[in-house]
Design a protein around this nucleic acid. Structure first.
Lengths: 133, 133
DNA sequence: GATGTATATGCCTTGACACGTATATGCCTA
DNA sequence: TAGGCATATACGTGTCAAGGCATATACATC
């Protein structure tokens, strides 16, 4: 359960995050708003807390949970490597990110070692099945 | 295994996606590059294909896989609701989104039913535990 | 057609995790 | 300090998905 990705794979946890995006909430608030049993809420909050997605402060018997964006930001950074695939018309920021992405080392490296790019391949029919090794 | 989130929760699948971000690859390419057994690669590719993350074309016995960005874009859109938490310096678009978010119906509603916002709360000690219902 | 190569699929086992239920902990007010 | 409220945790259970291994399918050369 370590990774950011596994943590947000759970629908209830995503619902909690979305709820907390509006404002901080107590466990009971979440319980009522999302109609899930209290132990379930607490367990998911635990996972989110240990993953750094949320933090809590104590208010008498209540715990108020609020968002901590770092892990989501990390996810955002992971997505960066794919943005150029759908952002053709970009604003300044995205253009900047795209540039970083294109400059990234492995793009060319991998293409080179994987033999050819697809365009070339079409005309490059092998005369015999190429051995694995 | 339906959701985008579950699909990218698997590390090997993320590795495949990252690899395909550089250029299209055959199953064997992926197998060698990521050092995973061929059936594993094929199974993950199947999940990715059914999730709309990749598509394949046939080249003799090979299948060439390439990225289809739609699901990742969807993920990007889900992330949008959280961006304001880490992008303090916003461009026009995000400022717009922020406004929509603040105007969102439940913000005030929820805060009201959860009694008060945290700032106020400090001075607002209840005289008795508020009943659940 | 025989053989080798590339990829997909089926079966089985194992482990992780989400959930329900019960209970523990802690704080409050009377 | 008693009793109720808010939250956390422990335990048992069912489900599901990932991996290993074997095999099936398809294509290409000889």
């Amino acid at each position: 359960m370590e990774s950011v990705f596994e943590i947000i794979a759970e629908p209830n946890r995503r619902a909690i995050l979305s709820l907390l995006a509006s404002s901080e909430q107590s466990v009971g608030d979440i319980e009522r708003e999302l109609r899930m049993p209290q132990p379930t809420v607490s367990k998911h909050l635990r996972v989110l807390r240990e993953g750094g997605f949320v933090e809590s402060t104590v208010d008498a018997q209540r715990r108020l949970y609020r968002l901590k964006p770092e892990p989501l930001r990390e996810l955002d950074e992971w997505l960066a490597q794919f943005r150029r695939f759908w952002s053709a018309h970009v604003d300044a920021l995205e253009r900047h990110l795209d540039r970083m992405d294109l400059d990234r080392t492995n793009v060319n490296r991998i293409e080179r070692q994987s033999h050819r790019t697809s365009t070339k391949r079409k005309s490059d029919k092998r005369t015999r099945p190429k051995p694995r090794k």
